[in-house]
Design a protein around this nucleic acid. Sequence first.
DNA 1: GTAGGGTTAG
Length: 745
Amino acid sequence: MESSSENLVKTLLRNPSSIKTKSQAKQLHAQIVKTRGSRSVSLATIIIGIYSDLNLLKESLEVFNNFRYVPTKAWKYVVRCYSCNGYFRDSLACFVEMRGWGKLPGSDVFPSVVRACTHLKELRVGESVHGCVIRFGMESDLYTANALMNMYAKLQVLSHDYHVFDEIPQSDRVYSRRSSLTQDSEIGILRNELIRSEKSHFESLSGRRVKNATGLDSVSKIFQMMPDKDVVSWNTVIGGNVQSGLYEEALERLREMSNAYLKPDCFTLSSVLPVFARHVDVLKGKEIHGYAIRHGFDKDEYIRSSLIDMYATCTRVEDSYRVFNLLSEKDDVSWNSIIAGCVQNGTFVEGLGLFRQMLAANVKPVEVSFSAILPACAHLTTLQLGKQLHAYIIRVGFDQNMYIASSLVDMYAKCGKIMTARWIFDRMEIHDPVSWTAIIMGYALNGHAREATILFENMQHDKIKPNAVAYLAILTACSHAGLVDEGWNYFTSMNRYGVSPDLEHYASIADLLGRAGRLTEAYKFINDMPIKPTGSIWATLLSACRVHKNVELAEKVAKEMSTADPGNMGPYLLLSNMYSAAGRWKDASKLRTNMKKKGMRKPPACSWIEVRNQVHAFVSGDTSHPYYDQIHVALRDLYERLKQEGYVPQISEALHDVDEEQKSDLLYTHSERLAIVFGIISTPAGTTIRIIKNLRVCVDCHTAIKFISKIMGRDIIVRDNSRPFQRWELFMWRLLVMVTMEMYP
DNA sequence: GTAGGGTTAG
């Protein structure tokens, strides 16, 4: 017995890789200690190698700590094991200590050390390690070079993105949010030690500091110098290009890769799929999908979520759904992909439904889930749901996430809660162009142009250059407040900042001039634009003509508009309204007959209201709502009280040439009134009523709502397609009340 | 040693 087990031990020691499990490793270790004691350095080194290969950190460290004099191999095993177990700081510390003992590192330890630097986002330490790699002639090692490319691809892109913090020392930058100060100073010491010992070698050997390189220079340089490249090398360089937005380069590398007779794998495909998504090239995307199916990669969860995203970005949400529904196991990423796909394509209610399904499926929402779903609350003005999400976000500590904070600012602003939006904005640690734009646009939409211009200036003091969207926000602010000169100045200053105005900026200026009643100027401006005017830009001017009752110009503009956009009946509707308002009934009816001949029909007016986490839709004259009878009774009562208060229906803008009685009947079946009355009868007294409507609120509804607000003592906010916010307000803004989230028990 | 999902756009 004794000798046979001794033989086995000998066999195993000659061939340590045959040990496959923890218990086998421990048995062997115990047998050796029993028969030969624990003195032998060479045996201990073999054992630590076995433990480290099995990723057993605790066991490796037990052996490691018993060495009086640690052999080089043992150092390497422990550095690697720390890194593999996610203890990146310890891995680096161990590496520094190993170097301090004069031990020579090799291709067996560099990949783990570089990986540690990548995870710790320590570019400068990584550069020093790179210096060390060059010093020991390891730069042509496949695994080491792959790891280095990965590090530069990830960290150099990062340091470009966050140029805002350039003055802040790097240690603060990387760790300020996540780690304690002690860890910072530890890594600082580590970094200094490494940099002191390796920097000069690195600089002299590589000829220049990699830090000064731009974009993917370092990655390409390493890639070109590699004597052997495998699929991972190609994937890393392709992925790096994609992440830096260099899509053409990524595709070129993909072609080169096939020329080198290397077949794309799961990693390659999920890296290049976003390229076709960004290019909105669904045909190429489908080719990749087909390739994935042929090679059996379509079972891969990374590929699937990339496919969901690709189809959604190409506005093919149905195809996203198809891929999503085929998933047997749906993880948070696939849920987030489909939710984001819906929201980005404007199907907000579906997005919310999927979000609820995700929770019901016990998939925990992560940061991305919230930044994906919050825009849906913003667009639907579902403030209650938005607040519940916000409460949850605060509870789990996601509130300092840039994406989430910006979406919250936008959501509160779109729900008319501009003070809350500001409160969140002011409490953000850092502001980026998006968060600035969200708050500026928030003030613009809520009609506070002055505050918007102040913030626009503050943004520039914060060294953030306004981009096209920021300009759109400030132009919107000016046009809503009638600040013609200011708006014009902002518009002309765009080129100074290297932002070339696009159609939306021109539209904003046309709107600005039109609202201010400078109609002829606006007409000339649109005609002189360097971009071909679209139907929608003419529509802006046309509605200005209506407001300023200029029928002659309106006729001209309507003509231009129907040439630019023949299918659109907007110009006909507006013009016919204007004829009616001017009492030119014949012209109005002629126009309407023309429309009918062309087969044009007005889209149904629709209003939405959120009550107890449910969105209720009302179509003009619609009787299908389950509470329609109650709504109708309440509407009649309300109508009586409105009349007592002095409300007189203003029917001059009504579309139909019918008698007065019929007109007022038509008017009080308008969808927004149905929604408002439903809101009144189904919410407690004093609750703010928030409505969204797909068409413009008519003048009579505007007046009626003012009366309703007064009689019922309610704030009423209506967002329609011409002015996002019109409010009939009785109370001051209330402070944000945190609502406990019903959906998260 | 490699890969997927997120914020602003009257």
